[in-house]
């Protein structure tokens, strides 16, 4: 008997991505560059976050034509984004056969109260989180993988660092707490108690946690790995740089050997200009993608 869509099958898929880089792509050509550079997966999009930011308006699931084009172009897993709470976009992506769905704050939320019940799907989900409470609410809903929210499309690492440090510190606190302190911690975090018990027992999050939202250089990727990320998503950073293929390779290598500073130094040479980037304090409140979802 074969069981599909079990937690082990869905979470296991994310475990296989560890130590790797997942790259945003908008067409088959970019997908092939990403695969050739050593990406462990690609995220098929209509526009990268920086362009979504620039375009304004409502950002939705990508045109299925693009998703299918990318799926046809590469043999590595293909992910795609659905709007927060948009049951039908998620079901459509699942029907298309994408390997992972990102219920993503980069798109305009479809529901301001409820996230998807991700446990109901056969396809696994990744969700963004700024802190442990948010992370565990998503896992409670069935997310099989986590990532920092960071601030997408800015090329500014500061928010991803904030979110990764926050989650790591809160995990440490839970691990160091005695059992009788955990219910209060669950209340304070707004996180399921059972998941806190699981963290205390295993000493780590129940699913992998990647870094995302603002990674623009090989050094950024290595920084996030040092802070405890299991891998990295690079959105606008690669295909908004001057030499995407060179950039992509350098980020893959820096992620593998994140403690080899001489290597990262060499990788960072002559890469051309990274994406320009945005100072976070210059964003208006409504421009902050990380505040979407709860």
């Amino acid at each position: 008997m074969a069981d599909r869509g079990t937690d082990r099958v869905k979470r296991g898929m994310a475990e296989m991505q560890k130590g790797g880089v997942i790259m945003d792509v908008v067409n088959a050509e970019q997908a092939k560059i990403a695969e050739e550079a050593g990406a462990v997966a690609v995220m098929a999009l209509e526009r990268v976050p920086a362009d979504i930011r620039a375009a304004g308006g409502v950002a939705r699931m990508a045109d299925p034509t693009i998703v299918e084009e990318v799926m046809g172009a590469v043999s590595i897993p293909v992910m795609a984004k659905a709007r927060i709470g948009h049951i039908v976009e998620a079901r459509v992506l699942e029907a298309l056969g994408v390997d992972y769905i990102d219920e993503s704050e980069v798109l305009t939320p479809a529901d301001e109260v409820y996230h998807l019940d991700k446990s109901e799907y056969t396809v696994p989900f990744v969700c963004g989180a700024r802190d442990l409470g948010e992370a565990l609410r998503r896992v409670g809903e069935g997310a099989s993988m986590l990532r920092t929210k960071g601030e997408p499309g800015t090329g500014n690492i500061v928010e991803a660092v904030r979110h990764m440090r926050m989650v790591q510190a809160q995990v440490k606190k839970v691990v160091g707490s005695s059992k009788d302190e955990l219910m209060t911690e669950a209340k304070n975090l707004g996180a399921p108690y059972e998941l806190l018990l699981e963290i205390k027992e295993n000493g780590r999050l129940p699913v992998v946690n990647f870094a995302a939202g603002g990674i623009a250089t090989p050094a950024d990727a290595a920084l996030m790995m040092q802070l405890g990320a299991d891998g990295v998503f690079v959105g606008s950073g690669i295909f908004k740089s001057d030499h995407p293929d060179k950039f992509a390779r350098a980020i893959v290598e820096a992620t593998t050997h994140y403690e080899d500073y001489e290597l990262i130094g060499r990788l960072s040479k002559d890469l051309g200009t990274a994406m320009k980037g945005i100072e976070i304090s210059n964003l208006e409140p409504e421009e902050r993608m990380q505040d979407r979802g709860w």
């Binding site: 074969a2 069981d3 599909r4 079990t6 099958v9 296991g12 043999s75 897993p77 390997d99 056969t122």
Partner: peptide, 14 residues
């Protein structure tokens, strides 16, 4: 043969 059982949604345990 790679990905011989299909994509992720066809992944399974037994």
């Amino acid at each position: 043969e790679r990905n011989a059982f299909g994509r992720q949604r066809e992944s399974f345990e037994t």
